[in-house]
Design a binder for these strands. Sequence first.
RNA 1: GCGCCCGUAGCUCAGUGGAUAGAGCGCCGGACUACGAAUCCGUAGGCCGCAAGUUCGAAUCUUGCCGGGCGCACCA
Length: 555
Amino acid sequence: MKDKLTQHLAAALDRAMAEGALPQVEAPAITLERPRQAEHGELATNLALQLAKPCRMNPRAVAQIMVEQLGDAGGILQRAEIAGPGFINFHIQPSAWLAVLPLILAQGPDYGRATLGQGKKALVEFVSANPTGPLHVGHGRGAALGDVLARLLRFVGYEAHSEYYINDAGNQMATLGRSLLVRARQSRGSGEEFPENHYRGGYMQELAAQFLALPQHAGVLDMPLEQAVDLASAWAGAQILGGIKDDLNAFGVGIDTWFSERSLVEQGAVQAAFDELTQRGLLYQAEGALWFKATAFGDEKDRVVKRGNGELTYFASDIAYHLDKFRRGYARLVDIWGADHHGYVPRLKAAMAGLDLAPDDLSVVLVQMVNLLRGGVPVAMSTRAGEFVTLKEVVDEVGADSARFIFLTRRSEAQLDFDLEVAKQKSMDNPVFYVQYAHTRVKSVLKKAAEAGVDLPDPQSADLTPLALAEEIALARLLGDYPEMVLGAAVNLEPHRVTYYLHELAGAFHSYYNAHHILFEDPPLTAARLVLAMAVGAVLKGGLALLGVSAPEAM
RNA sequence: GCGCCCGUAGCUCAGUGGAUAGAGCGCCGGACUACGAAUCCGUAGGCCGCAAGUUCGAAUCUUGCCGGGCGCACCA
């Protein structure tokens, strides 16, 4: 609708200038907006206000000329009015809004698809937690966000993949191995204290017991320490990573590629990146370490890539990692990080600039923490003591649908309160049920229609003119907004727009449903209303699918 | 001290430079002898942190203050 009217406006402007009604000026971008006030029509433009200055004319006079040139815009306009300082308010023919209903039902799950990405490859990297312990609730939020962003990007025309970067090369893996060995020795009565800054979570004791029970580990406690640590860290890392995969799977999050940091280092990718930076004169030795000249690209200080003890920093492999992503053909990168890493963004962007990559091709989405509550009371969590509620526990308790939806009800950079009791409730307090219930109601009506012997109408040929209520036109308009909303969510990397939209659509349908009957009206009206209900159901289902949330037939 | 994010209804938060700023929760009062009351309807509640600036027009953009969070490693 917007597109059609925009085209008519552009044509009208051209004619006005060609005929001399308006002076020849550069045409501003035409924008259409939805006025808040119903009496201001369904769409409005500020075009005349923008033209007034270059034309040196009164904006209302410009608006008058535009309205005359526009006519009825190919039949979609009921009327156009000039209002306030020079807005043009458009009242659209109701039937023009209804035209979206058969379109939705013809396209089904593809309604709203776009070609924005033009098939370009996009990579969404998320969670990427060290395999040193199970995922917790905060990881779940990042996982939901990343998974849905990948789905959104795919929906608007990118060839999007999801990736998990396994930080298996740093010294935290050795710490993991040592932690496991301490627990193993303790279980044999060593009586030693558990060291500071090691992984003391309860899961480590269970792992240690499993570790010792395996025949190939029989002599591990008598091995040279270094060898034992290697063995223990490799084994524990693999076990924990397996658990992470299981947990993400149960959460409905599919990861296309699991990318190992260690493999990157072993393949010499870090050295290759260093070579490129060296050629550009962007690496230098100082104070015993190797530095990247990040200040040359806007970072506030230069950054160490190789420490004085010869070890690489995390930053070093991250440079190589992101270079590798582009080398694999990805044109658009999305990284999802905890908000506490925000200071790291300029550094990585600087590195990309140093490698002649466009920093704007990388978007970093920062995700804030989750405050876990139970019945309004904060659930105590301490990562240091290894006491935290895992993602698995939350998913087991409230279900993946509920957890995913609630994780996406806030902008990522805002903190999120997650109440376990609310997430379990089957009432309007719980937004996911509110939306799913609306879908169920549509299905229920269709089922009832079948039972009552009412034939489902063919959306393509049904007469929709009986849909004359303001609520019905409003619902059709809302359904027509879906493609634009999806596009906005994808472009801005903001999946919460989808949850908000679905909540609004569900609410509009619930209201309509309570005020009017779909069935048992006269046959033409029932048929038209069934088409409307089917379209609402289709969009609810499609939107929920984008979120990876089920759209149940019955609840 | 420097940097990033955030200040919108009692609470949690939406809000693409547009007209009289919205939703959910909470409070109070209502609605099923026809399609699911897991729902709906109504009332109340606001110097959009403060102040300048840009603009025909600012919750939105710029600057400065105030308040909160998070960073500022040869950790990840």
